[in-house]
Every structure is written in structure tokens, then in C-alpha cells.
């Protein structure tokens, strides 16, 4: 148990030597030749951190846990809304809460949340209208949140541009729109790998797939998309 903090101290020291800022701070004591002076501030700080290693580790893990819990809460299943207002209103409310936007079938105007997350409640009047286009770009939608869109059988376009929580499992669950989905934008999603690509084969009607700026090279595989090679990929923006 004692060995670990020591190791951390070593690595911290190495870090500190690498960083120019800390070096600058560290250089100061050279000028004073007195060896008996108290240890410099950064040493004291590092020592303090070493002694509190497990507490700092705990704080950090709590921090990431809280963040994760926040995302989970945002993606909760809107069962209450669904029970009282039906699945369409619940889906619409979910999208707007996540600062996304959508368009109903047969309508031309989009419902969107503004920069500060406020939106108008007009969508409550469209109890029976289905969603046709959904724009979830740069939101925290994840696998669990996708449940709220279950049952949207006429969804044609889905944009997931820059969603940090969209991963391969998410793509695998898109089979719920397998008959209707025609356009899918998964560009700039950092968590998508080649493993999730195979799942897109379930989307029978897919016509347009935007995969630009994905972390891996998608190009060679687009032409071989199982949907019959009719998928046009948007070229890389690199």
C-alpha cells in the first residue's frame, strides 16, 4: 500500500519536470544558496497531494461519476410524459430537453430549443403527429435515451453530428428505424468504431450516410454497404 503513493510521487515529479511552467517555479530556489530554507511551494504541494493520494483519487472518481449520472438523468426514459401525453409528445419533449430539434411529418417548420435550452410548448398540440426529421447534433443523447424515440416509425432523417455519447451500441439499436430511416449523419462522433459499422446493415432504406471526420477511415467500406451499395457517403472534410 505504501509503494503506490511513492510511485505516484515519482511520476508527478517527472510530470513537473516536463512542464515548463512548473520548471519556471522550480528554478527560483537556485539563486538562494541556503540549503536550510523550507522546501519550495510546489514541493509542498506535491507532498500534500502524495499524502492525500487516495482522497484525490476518490474526488476525481466522484467527479466523473457525477458527470455520468448527469448524462444518465438527461437520457432517462420519459415514462411519465408518455403515460399522460402519449409517445409522440414524450419523444418531442425529450428531444427539446436535450436541446435538439425536430420536424413533424407533413410540416415544414422545425421545433428547436434555443441556445439557453428554452423552447416553446406548441408541440403539445400535436399529439398524434409523428416525427419525420430529428436533429440531435451536439447533444448528449445515448443508448438509453434512444428508447424515447422508439415507435417513431416515420423517422426519415436523423442527425447525430458531434454527439459524444453515440457509440457502436447506439448504432446497433438504430434497427428500430430500420424501415423508415433514409438519412443518417454520424459525423464527428468520437466513439464510433468499425465494430458498429456492421450494425448499419439493418437499416434497409438508408440512402445517405455522413461519416466525415470519424476517427477511422470509412471510405473503403461505404461502397460495400449492405443496403445495396446505394448509400452515398459524404466525403471527408479533412
Amino acid at each position: 500500500m505504501e509503494a503506490l503513493p511513492y510511485k505516484r510521487k515519482q511520476s508527478l515529479r517527472r510530470c513537473c519536470q516536463g512542464s515548463p511552467l512548473l520548471l519556471l517555479v522550480a528554478r527560483r530556489p537556485w539563486s538562494s544558496s541556503s540549503a536550510a530554507s523550507p522546501p519550495p511551494l510546489h514541493t509542498k504541494l506535491l507532498l500534500f497531494l502524495t499524502q492525500r493520494f487516495y482522497d484525490v483519487e476518490m474526488l476525481l472518481s466522484w467527479g466523473s461519476q457525477m458527470k455520468r449520472r448527469g448524462i444518465q438523468r438527461k437520457n432517462a426514459y420519459y415514462s411519465y410524459t408518455q403515460r399522460f401525453h402519449g409517445p409522440n409528445i414524450a419523444a418531442a419533449y425529450y428531444i427539446l430537453s436535450l436541446r435538439g430539434g425536430f420536424k413533424y411529418v407533413g410540416q415544414s417548420d422545425w421545433f428547436r430549443a434555443d441556445q439557453r435550452g428554452r423552447f416553446s410548448w406548441d408541440f403539445l398540440n400535436h399529439r398524434d403527429a409523428h416525427l419525420e426529421e430529428v436533429d440531435m447534433s451536439n447533444t448528449v443523447i445515448n443508448y438509453a435515451g434512444l428508447w424515447n424515440l422508439d415507435g417513431q416509425r416515420s423517422l426519415r432523417t436523423l442527425s447525430l453530428r458531434g454527439c459524444s455519447e453515440v457509440d457502436d451500441w447506439f448504432l446497433a439499436r438504430l434497427h428500430m428505424f430500420q424501415d423508415s430511416l433514409e438519412e443518417l449523419d454520424i459525423s464527428h462522433c468520437p466513439c464510433i468504431t468499425t465494430g458498429g459499422l456492421a450494425a448499419l446493415r439493418n437499416l434497409k432504406g438508408l440512402k445517405r450516410l455522413d461519416v466525415s471526420s470519424l476517427p477511422w477511415d470509412f471510405e473503403p467500406w461505404v461502397g460495400r454497404h449492405p443496403a445495396g451499395g446505394n448509400v452515398a457517403a459524404v466525403p471527408h472534410h479533412r
Partner: peptide, 11 residues
């Protein structure tokens, strides 16, 4: 000195 200062802290 820096290394020493970090490792032992003593004269």
C-alpha cells in the same frame, strides 16, 4: 538542486 529538493528536501 531541484532534484535533490524534491527527493530529500534536506541539506
Amino acid at each position: 538542486t531541484l532534484c535533490r529538493g524534491l527527493s530529500t528536501g534536506g541539506p
